[in-house]
Structure formats: C-alpha cells, structure tokens
Design a binder for these strands. Structure first.
Lengths: 161, 161
DNA sequence: CCCTTAATTAGAATGATTCTCATTTGATTA
DNA sequence: TAATCAAATGAGAATCATTCTAATTAAGGG
C-alpha cells in the first residue's frame, strides 16, 4: 500500500535520531516486515525470510534488530501464548488500534483495526490515576465459519508459555 | 475470604468429574493458589511455596498440576510478556471480568474486577461471527502515583518473550 | 491383597531468546 | 587516503522456562 521506499526513509530517519544506523542487515529486516504486514511473524519467521535476501545474516542480528525496533516503537511485540513472540510493524495511523480474535479450534488470528477502547481508557485515567500509553485486547473464542482446518490463517499449535 | 476447605471441596469435585484425583501434591498446590489469590504467581513461585509445605514435590508435578487446572478452567494462565506464565485462580463470579493496568515504570500490576467489554463482545459476535469465550484486556502506562520504587507490587523486570 | 492405571520424581531434553567475544564495518578525523 | 574507534555483526555457547522420559510409587476396584 504505502511505497516501501518512503516507509524505509521514515524509519531510517527514526533510527538516525536515536543514534542507530540503518545497516544492510537492518534494512533487509525492515523490508521483510514491510512486505509481510499482514502476518504476525515470529523472530524465526523473520530470520528465514531475511536469509533468502541476505544469506550471511545471523539469527542474533535479527533478534537484536527486532529488539531495537521494538524499543523505538517501530514494531510491536505481541504474544499469543504459544511460546513465541511475534512482531508487527506499527503504523502511526493504526497504532493503538488493533485487537485480535483468536480461534480456539483452528488457531487462526484475525486482526481488527478499530479503536473500541477510547472511552474505557478515559475511565481508567479518571478512576485509577493511570495514564494509558498502550493497550492490548484479545478475544478467545470460535468463528462461526471455523472448519478446524482453516489453513489460510492457521498456525501450528504449541504448548508453552 | 471464602473458607479454604469449602473451595477445596468444590475443586475436588471438579477434578473427580473429569476423572482426576486430588492427590496430596495437587491439594497443596491448590492451597497455595488459594492462599495467594492476590498475586499472579509464576510456576516457579508456586513451586517454591509448595515446597515449603511438601518438600519432596517435583517441579514437573507443579507444572502438570497447573496445566491440568488450566484445562479445567480452575486457574487462568496469563502472560505479561516478561517471559514467564502466571497463574490465577478463577472464581466463577469473577471469571471473565478482570483486566490489568501494567505500570511501565515500576512494573506494578493492578487488577481491575469489572466487566467493561460486554457490549464489545456482542459487537464482535454480530459483526464478525465470532463467539467469544474469553478475553484479555491489559493496559500499559504509568500510575500518577508511581514512585518507581513501588516495591509492594513490583516484580523484577525481565527481557524475554 | 493383587492388579491396573494414574501420578510422581529426577533429571535429561527442548526451544526460544540472550549473551559473549572475536571480527568486521563505517563514519570521522588527521 | 590512512588511521582510528565505536557500533554492529556472526557463530556458537549459555540461559531459562517449560516439557518429556523412564523408572518408581500410590490408590481404588475386584
């Protein structure tokens, strides 16, 4: 949707502001994230995709890059309780405004871009003296249309965490 | 608040229904959870507390017990993104109705018992054909009163997951 | 009291993530 | 351009929570 080059320029600028460099490894990593905005990629997913474009890269570098991007709020680290962290680019215009529907049967994760929590956040601030900077809202349940083999969005189930 | 013996009886009954036995190890584990309802204990926390009452118990047993209790919906497994799963007893009357305020500065976690999401869940069902069986709502931000040394609720910060 | 099955224990194994350290890169200054 | 120095990288070791394994034990039904 948004031209990759333009996004890259913005991100490059953000890194520079904080004294980081946009090295080739980092650029490839960001590109992969830009090209896979729909998915919630794990670090390992990102690593494998990055490796196709930049075979010499090390796993640790990918982790370090994702960590840095998380710190700079360029990506968001989410955790669906399956033992792996997942990373999503965080567009300013959508920041703070997406929730998840997680299907108990097939594991599909649907993302909803909408902010339903404005009024609740105001209430939290009023009643608890808590200034909200971010939130997370996930629903677990079942899709009416779930076929239990919903391969399209399905991800293998794991036990951990 | 609620007599421990009574709660234990209820839980014992729930286990029996599903063909599980309330072994001494399991009973001690449940007792620890009952006596520490305020905290969000990690498996390791539970293990250390249980060990005081039942020193021969093994870590794996605690993990298995917590897993079983989670399956039976007697406890809820939550994850604050610090790399460890935490476990809370789930009272029927409060089930489905607590959210968290997580302080970015001191790490304190405040629990809110209230259900603010009723209307949102109805909307999800209507608009997305998704039947909600559980939800999770956490806010990250800062307490106005945060002293950054809020030891009372503070938990050591970790990096992972 | 025996038998079958579930439950337990200790320790090994796993898997994601982080750390270490030797090496490389890149910008900056001489 | 060469020298310099901090930041960044790569490979693999280390860590840590969690799960698995195999051998042992306990408990309820006949």
């Amino acid at each position: 949707m948004i031209p990759v080059a333009e996004e890259l320029g913005k991100i490059n600028h953000q890194l520079k502001m904080k004294g980081y460099k946009l090295t080739p490894q980092r650029e490839v990593t960001v590109r992969v994230l830009l090209e896979n905005e729909k998915d919630h990629l794990s670090a390992e997913d990102v690593y494998m995709l990055v490796k196709q474009k930049f075979p010499e890269i090390g796993l640790a570098t990918v982790y370090r890059t994702l960590e840095m991007l998380t710190e700079l709020q360029i990506v968001e680290k989410v955790n669906f309780g399956d033992g792996v962290a997942r990373f999503d680019l965080r567009h300013n215009d959508h920041a703070h405004m997406h929730h998840h529907l997680i299907c108990r049967d097939c594991g599909a994760v649907k993302e909803i871009k909408d902010d339903w929590l404005q009024s609740i956040e105001e209430r939290v601030e009023r009643e608890f003296g808590f200034v909200v900077s971010d939130h997370r809202l996930d629903f677990t349940g079942v899709f009416n249309t779930c076929t239990k083999t919903n391969k399209s969005e399905c991800r293998k189930k794991r036990k951990a965490v």
